[in-house]
Design a protein around this nucleic acid. Sequence first.
DNA 1: TAATTATATACGTATAACCATATATATGGT
DNA 2: ACCATATATATGGTTATACGTATATAATTA
Lengths: 117, 117
Amino acid sequence: MLNEADTFFKMLADSTRLRCLLLMQAEGELCVCEFSHALNLSQPKISRHLAHLRQSGVIIARRSGTWMHYRINPELQGWALEILQTTLDGVSHTEPFVSDRKILTSMNKRPELECCA
Amino acid sequence: MLNEADTFFKMLADSTRLRCLLLMQAEGELCVCEFSHALNLSQPKISRHLAHLRQSGVIIARRSGTWMHYRINPELQGWALEILQTTLDGVSHTEPFVSDRKILTSMNKRPELECCA
DNA sequence: TAATTATATACGTATAACCATATATATGGT
DNA sequence: ACCATATATATGGTTATACGTATATAATTA
């Protein structure tokens, strides 16, 4: 997918998806429970949006045990990757993005940070 | 408007609006008849999308006689302006953007290029 | 004032997007 | 096999978006 530029922007046009994307852009790989905790949104809601992002090719997934880890697709076209970074730089100091990162980094029992990566 | 980043991306998430925006980003100020001609889309369709872009603050308008000239809002936040340029650079060599510009520049009787700017 | 050109809006409809809740699957451990 | 945890999907309802067509407004000119 992602032949069409407007498809890429559709993925950024929902606040839940944008928060997830910028969290990944800032922090790298994250799993569903981390998104759910950081954004304080239900697991099905997060999961559905991540599935959406994955289907459109913006992110990729990796399973590790029961955890699914998601990250920005490094094979995205250069301009798309650049836009993600520009957006992060532009809005990372504003809400809700500040809180999202803060809550994430203060989360304990994060899967990635334990044994099982 | 445009407090919210996802609102900005919503504006880019429709192919008609994206084509109009990139045409403005590339060519500067344009009027409705030029969009309608270049994209080969009906006047009401173009006009409605431009109104949408204007309401969200992404573009601004200037009247000159019967013509309405639209252009990218120069007071957009820096990151938003940067994204428009990055997008243009990234996709301007692909369809439908190539054709749009080609048809625009080969259009005769363009208002801006005559007396009445 | 009437006609013409350029643009904007209104109306009805179709489709798509999002949501909350409930349930299903998948993995690992006992 | 059973249970617990992590994640995914399905269902039904609500709202938002986009569309084509018709019509309205706004400015210009005769």
